[in-house]
Amino acid sequence: MTYPPNNPYGGGNPYGGQPQPGYGQPQPGYGQPQPGYGQPQPGYGQPQPGYGQPPYGGQPQPPYGGPPQPSGPPAGVPTTLNVQSLPDDDNVNPYVFCITLNGEWFMSKGAMLAYYGNVQFDAVTEYSSVQAWVGAKFSSPIYVQDWVVAQGHGKVLIGDRGFDLNAYDLDDGNLTIKASNLCAFSPALELKQSIVPGFVTLIGTGKFIASSNGPVIFVEPPFRADPDALLGWADCPSPSVHHDAQWMTQSMLGALSGALGRASGEERQYDFTGKGTILLQSSEVAREDPAVLRLVESQTQLLTNAQAGSLGQRLVARAQQQH
């Protein structure tokens, strides 16, 4: 069987309209104005022809065929994929990305779904003792436990909770992304911890793969984003936190009663100014990021013993309230 290498769905562009060079393979160079981003992309959000519809692959598929069905090929039967027909560094479907591994890649723990070839997975901590460059490329002690180095030759399929996966090419740029949404990155890039908790910054030239709950929306500053829906930003200065003016007035009046109690959940946003691009996901469902705990814990060193004690009491009270 032969397949067009970059078109795993068989006939037609699965994402509707015109051929978009690399769904999920955005654009070289983030900073410049991007034609197509920021405005609705044709094909997103509308039924995707060719997905879940009959002839997925076209030809009869020997292993699945069985007796030919009178009603035509059964709906939704996936095309058989193998090493040759898997795409090179491209999406297999909106939720799965295939990395052609030839050397090393950093991958988030548990992102691997399956692989062909000779691939070895080592904890980053383990690997850095063998290869000193790892420490220079992965400069975030908070996240190091959640990452592995995939090393070898083959094709690795990765996925993340069934979220949409997109590949991004950085060209001598920088992009900050929610750490729990980053799935894999090439060692050509350098990872650093962002000042904003829960985010990491990738610097350099290379490719990385990130997940989003729903399609990614690109906007330009000035812009205020909900912290949960914020996926990342490129080239912008770090955001400041903006609080709703009315909420601020109220909480200043009621400061004695403890401002933490009166949150609607929407009074706090991240405020972006300057030049750049902001990435949003279309859902606010967040994943528990184990690193945030480590991050906050490491910052408690700033507290005096008395302060730490009173923080501890407040946390105990909060934990008891939630039960």
Binding site: Y51, Y64, G76, T80, L81, N82, N93, V96, L113
Partner: peptide
Amino acid sequence: GPVMALEVAPGQDLVVD
């Protein structure tokens, strides 16, 4: 999420999570 059918043949072993 959608199922992928991955082919296994001699010399093409597959490792799956």
